[in-house]
Design a protein around this nucleic acid. Structure first.
Length: 569
RNA sequence: GCGCCCGUAGCUCAACUGGAUAGAGCACCUGACUACGGAUCAGGAGGUUGGGGGUUCGAAUCCUCCCGGGCGCACCA
């Protein structure tokens, strides 16, 4: 993936350094990858020289000493420390380059121009969204924004779970025990209650299983019958509930397409699989054997009684998306427990000989567990997502009453802080790892949290608000005044790389970490550098620009993650 | 049983994917001119990176074997 984008932040210094080393050593530029020194005091970049030393048949320290002596790079000094070569950027050049770069609205962005599909959230109709849906929703939305900032044409797809035999159960349950009254009062709760009851009684009463199977067959028949009308009603009710949650998270989808959207492509899918010659019958069911692909479990595409399955619908969806979008990458932000499913999906397509299967990628994440055990809708071990949001917002409101009771727009800000805390908490962990849901930790507003970033941002806004003048142009300030802010400039300067890596590794946490560093450095900066009331106009001008740069960078990063940035809190 | 993921300070997590003395936050101690906002800042204490073996200049990271936890493994999604 090559880009022609201008170099942002510290990248503007990294390239000349690498080129200089490249010229001195006569090795491929790609082999020279700069690292971060162990300690900040050592400089901004480090290059371990073990490999190059071997090649040059010198001892590492001898080589670094020689290089340190020979290299001459504008605004960069170079020091040999044993086998490491450390580079330090001149204070004024650093401040000037980073501030100028970070003032741009396209900071840390790009023009990669790829078409990227992101499927995420995908809750099941007729069930409440619980904390288990939070990760896919929050991670998927963040990845979408990150790719978008890097210049991708992003298609956000909500693959609603609105099809399948479970809806046979639900409709059958509704026909037996449904209450119009309760449905109006507490729609999702009532539907869930029906589903759970059916699931339970099905084990004892065989007629129930037959009924639900029949209902699903009616649903899949394609006819406009009563079953379908009921299903549609449930879908509409559920969507209205989901949209409330998405609105709070500030998330919009480009395509709200449930599994049912691919309904009329399912038969074609089976036909296509037949034509590709990959299907076979096994115990009456239609399967695709994947043993040659190293997967022991075959993919089941049609049951013995003729209905389709999850795999059938995902295959149809994948093919349909390829035909519609010709995507460069198609990402599925779905829990790690479905790893096998996506391996099968890709393996089936691979057996069919399609090249684009390689552009599909499962982005797994660890599941959320409760201290009491796994989340389970059926067993009643759930925490509704809206409950988590409400409690967080409530706590934020309480905090505002204690700290800043005069704050205007208290409700709105409480919502922003409450949501920000939850979103950031989710995104600051590595995707893959399971997280144990702990109220105390999720609702924490101190330390490395969303509110910490929000607080830092608000304080910047506060300083800018209190200033007598607008933020000066970067052309009118003396950058030598900002030389003391090295830590801050370095932290801000690393955001572009963090963003790029977040995209490559599909790991928003890297941005979360970079933001925490920026906020920490920012707090140090305005502690040590009085902005207002010094009586020195040049000083004030330069520092106002510094604060404004900090504010903008935080706002940018928070926007990418989906953490709101109120001006006051 | 087979496959995938995980194991780092009391707790929750980092460590630039093989680099320098393993870093943060919470909790616990000590401090911060009536504060450009204390949701903050400065400092202290806290580690045999689950265990053994191997690979090499160098391992939390790679290989291997154990131990512990999680998730999957054909008519659910």
């Amino acid at each position: 993936m090559t880009t022609t984008q201008p170099l942002h932040g510290l990248d503007a210094f990294a390239l000349p350094i690498r080129q200089a080393v490249c010229a001195a050593l006569d090795v491929n530029l790609d082999l020279i990858s700069l690292e971060r020194p162990r300690q900040e005091e050592l400089g901004e970049f480090a290059l371990p020289c073990f490999r190059f030393a071997k090649q040059a048949q010198m001892s590492p320290p001898a080589l670094t000493a020689k290089l340190a002596d020979e290299l001459s790079i504008d605004n960069v000094t170079c020091e040999a420390v044993g086998p490491f070569l450390n580079f330090r950027i001149g204070a004024k050049a650093l401040a000037q380059a980073i501030v100028t770069s970070a003032q741009s609205s396209t900071y840390a962005g790009g023009d990669e121009g790829l078409t990227t599909l992101v499927e995420f959230s995908s809750p099941n109709i007729a069930k409440p969204m619980h904390v288990g849906h939070m990760r896919t929703t929050v991670i998927g939305a963040a990845l979408s924004r990150i790719f978008s900032h890097l210049g991708h044409d992003v298609k956000r797809i909500n693959h609603l779970g609105d099809w399948g035999s479970q809806f046979g159960k639900l409709v059958a349950a509704w026909q037996r025990w449904g209450s119009e009254e309760e449905l109006n009062a507490t729609p999702i709760e009532h539907l869930l209650e029906l589903y759970v009851r059916y699931h339970k009684e099905e084990k004892e009463d065989e007629t129930l299983a037959a009924d639900s199977k029949k209902s699903f067959q009616e649903l899949e028949s394609g006819e406009e019958n009563k079953t379908r009308a009921t299903w549609r009603k449930f879908t509409d009710i559920s969507l209205a509930e989901f949209n409330k949650v998405y609105a709070r998270f500030g998330i919009e989808f480009d395509y709200l397409r449930g599994e049912s959207w691919y309904e009329d492509q399912l038969n074609d899918m089976i036909t296509w699989l037949d034509e590709c010659g990959v299907t076979e019958l096994s115990d009456g069911a239609t399967i695709v054997n994947l043993e040659e692909q190293g997967i022991k479990t075959p993919s089941l595409v049609k049951t013995a009684h003729g209905t389709t399955l999850y795999a059938t619908r995902d295959l149809a969806a994948a093919k349909s998306r390829w035909e519609e979008f010709s995507f460069d990458q198609s990402l599925y932000v779905v829990g790690a427990e479905q790893t096998l499913h996506f391996q099968q999906l890709k393996a089936v397509l691979s057996r069919c000989g399609v090249e684009w299967e390689q552009r599909m990628e499962h982005i797994p994440f660890g599941l959320i567990r409760l201290t009491e055990g796994k989340l389970s809708t059926r067993e009643g071990r759930v925490i509704a997502l809206s409950d988590v949001l409400d409690r967080s917002v409530e706590l934020a409101a309480k905090s505002i009453e204690e700290k800043n009771p005069e704050l205007p727009n208290k409700e709105l800000v409480a919502e922003q802080i409450g949501l920000g805390a939850i979103v950031f908490h989710d995104l600051k962990h590595q995707r893959q790892k399971d997280v144990v849901f702990d109220w105390k930790e999720v609702l924490s507003f101190e330390g490395d949290t969303g509110p910490y970033l929000q607080y830092t941002h608000a304080r910047c806004c506060s300083i800018l608000r209190r200033a007598d003048k607008d933020v000066p142009s970067i052309n009118d300030i003396d950058f030598s005044i900002l030389e003391g802010g090295r830590e801050l400039w370095v932290a801000i300067g690393r955001l572009p790389q963090a963003t790029r890596e977040a995209a490559i590794k599909r790991e928003p946490m890297l941005i979360a970490n970079a933001l925490l560093k920026i906020a920490a450095a920012g707090n140090g900066f305005y502690r040590d550098n009085q902005v207002l009331g010094t009586g020195d106009d040049n000083l004030e001008s330069a520092r106002l620009v510094a604060i404004d740069t900090l504010r903008k960078t935080l706002a940018l990063g928070m926007r990418l993650l989906g953490v709101p940035a109120p001006q006051e809190m």
